[in-house]
Amino acid sequence: MISNSEKDFIVDGCRENCRQDGRTRNEIRSYMTISGSNPSIESNDDDSSEQHHPPLVLSNGSARVFLATGETHVLVSVKAELMTPAMSHPDCGALDIHVDYMHNPQGMTNSKKDDSMAPTIASLLLPHLVDPKQLCVVPHHFVWKLHLDVMVLASNGGSLLDACSLGIQAALRNTVLPQLTPEAAPDGGRPILQIDADLQNAVPIPGSEHAPIISTVSLLKPNAGSGSATPILILDATQQEEACAVSQVHVVLDRSNQNQKEPLICAIHKAGGGALPFSLLQDVTSFVLEANGGAAKVCSGSGHEHLLQETFLLQ
């Protein structure tokens, strides 16, 4: 809940390019990513992205994404399972997504439980995450099915979908699948698989390094006194700013093509009320591309986030 006066203050601030926390309209808060289960402090070396951190138990890959201020905290785990492919697509694997909210009795409350989030992520991200053909082991008999489990630990920071997509991207990068050697069955039936249980030999999924991310633009209606009627666009809205927004546009950005400087837009979804003129959609997409044009702003492993998280938050 938010009062009209606070709304006016926030909207005016966005118009003047100084938001409540001092950010500009297209500035993204610093999200921290920790891949795997056990973040080691020495991960602040430059080559840390190369070495592989073991995932959580019982999962093939996992990652944690949180805001430095702790208001948003998302844990993502990827579990792989062998299954028989559908008859129509004998060489395609499958992906499945599930979103869960943690019940937290202490101060950090999950303000709103959004049941529509899992279907939204599924329709926006699933077709672009991994090439299903890469998950094929033996056509017609064995393919991998990836279960993506998103656990929302704290959701007070707003822009939850963005954080979830960052988590999914990091978890897929962290995912390794065990080596399989199929042996033809003597009678020509279903082949037998030999599984290499040693995790050292497990391999990442090809093409999973550049899973797309979601970038959400919130549209604020300017106050009556300001004279202009064009909506104000802001990126990475906080919960208070989301409360003021008329509607939100989720833009899915694909960075898999290394040759291109700008990421590709592979999906757009509008949430919330209000009509969005078609001409404005152009503004929204160029706004996102402008903000995301350079390197991804997500930092990981500078050493200090552990200090904040482990020493102060979890004491």
Binding site: F9, D12, G13, E16, C18, R19, Q20, D21, G22, A68, T69, G70, G225, L308, F312, Q315
Partner: peptide
Amino acid sequence: TPVLPDERQSIARLRNAIESLRLVH
């Protein structure tokens, strides 16, 4: 009366100073 940009900056700065105190308990 609308808040001036300078005032807004210092409100945001003080807000973040308080927030950083919260972060380190």
